[in-house]
């Protein structure tokens, strides 16, 4: 009897410790989403009522679909180019080349510095009077300043700038987790450096790298400050949602809510799919 009580008491304490965490989870996350969900079924500007109009309007509008496509293009493209850039970077940095600590620190900067400032700096750097164009125009075949700001390619570049560190750091830590003796064993067995990379290093780190690139995908999908400032006419979902509220008086709360719900569902669906693919790879 006493023992049962003790056990009960023990469990009760555990749940009591978790209470604040769940309070914040429900109060600041779950409940707001519920409110958004309810709002998304309200006719615009009314306090009650039920309608699917907000979803239908958004999803049937070709511009609405373009926004979704753009969001995916940016997220997937960013993930791809981050991988393309991070793997060589991590391979170089793991060899502890001279100054590798400095370059490691550099890879952290986009994570630590407010995204807004990164965006502003990139706009200045790639602008028509920025250093990039000054350098480019020193080349013989470049006569006009290259337009990078407010183009899709430019936006993608800025995204990669801001979000590659997730991929780079996980790639680096995956590489550093490898047993170097395995590569030595490969070399002794007759594999040249390219074969060691292809048959031994890449297959070993790929699960970790892909898991890390999920973070890049996730944050790129939800990116807000960068496209808000540097996107120009390219507005992914997050910016479009904000515009529904900020550019109209009264604000389009219902339309924005419907978009937010769509965005949340797409994000969760994409993540689940990605994770499932990853698991399958690992099981195999």
């Amino acid at each position: 009897m006493l023992q049962t009580w003790r056990k009960y008491e023990h469990n009760a304490t555990t749940w009591l410790l978790l209470l604040p965490a769940f309070a914040s989870f429900f109060g600041l996350f779950a409940y707001p989403i519920l409110v958004t969900l309810i709002q998304s079924f309200r006719p615009e500007g009314q306090a009650d009522g039920f309608t699917f109009e907000n979803y239908i309007n958004f999803l049937s509008d070709p511009r609405g679909r373009d926004v979704i496509v753009l969001t995916f293009v940016l997220a997937i493209g960013t993930t791809f180019f981050s991988l393309l850039f991070s793997i060589p970077l991590a391979l170089i940095l793991r060899d502890k080349v001279r100054g590798h600590r400095f370059f490691r620190l550099l890879a952290l900067i986009p994570l630590m510095v407010p995204g807004l400032i990164g965006a502003l700096g990139l706009l200045l750097f790639f602008g028509s009077r920025g250093w990039f164009n000054l350098a480019a125009q020193a080349l013989p075949f470049v006569t006009e300043p290259l337009t990078i700001n407010y183009t899709l390619q430019g936006l993608m570049l800025f995204y990669v700038w801001l979000y590659f560190p997730y991929t780079a750091l996980t790639t680096l830590s995956a590489l550093e987790g490898l047993d170097r003796a395995v590569e030595e064993a490969g070399a002794v067995a007759g594999a040249n450096p390219r074969q060691v990379l292809r048959y031994l290093i890449i297959p070993q780190i790929i699960p970790g790298v892909l898991a890390g690139s999920v973070l890049t995908f996730m944050t790129a999908f939800g990116a807000f400050s960068i496209p808000l400032i540097t996107g120009g006419d390219y507005r992914p979902l997050s910016v479009q949602i904000y515009k529904e509220i900020s550019s109209f008086i009264p604000a389009h709360w219902s339309a924005a809510s419907a978009m937010a719900i769509v965005m949340g569902i797409l994000q969760v669906a994409a993540l689940t799919l990605y994770m499932r693919l990853l698991r399958q790879r690992q099981v195999r």
Binding site: Y31, I33, L34, G222, F224, W253, I261, M263, Q267
Partner: peptide, 14 residues
């Protein structure tokens, strides 16, 4: 894991 904008709307409303 969810973009903040999706629940920021609800937070603002509450």
């Amino acid at each position: 894991m969810i973009p903040p904008i999706t629940y920021a709307l609800g937070v603002a409303k509450i």
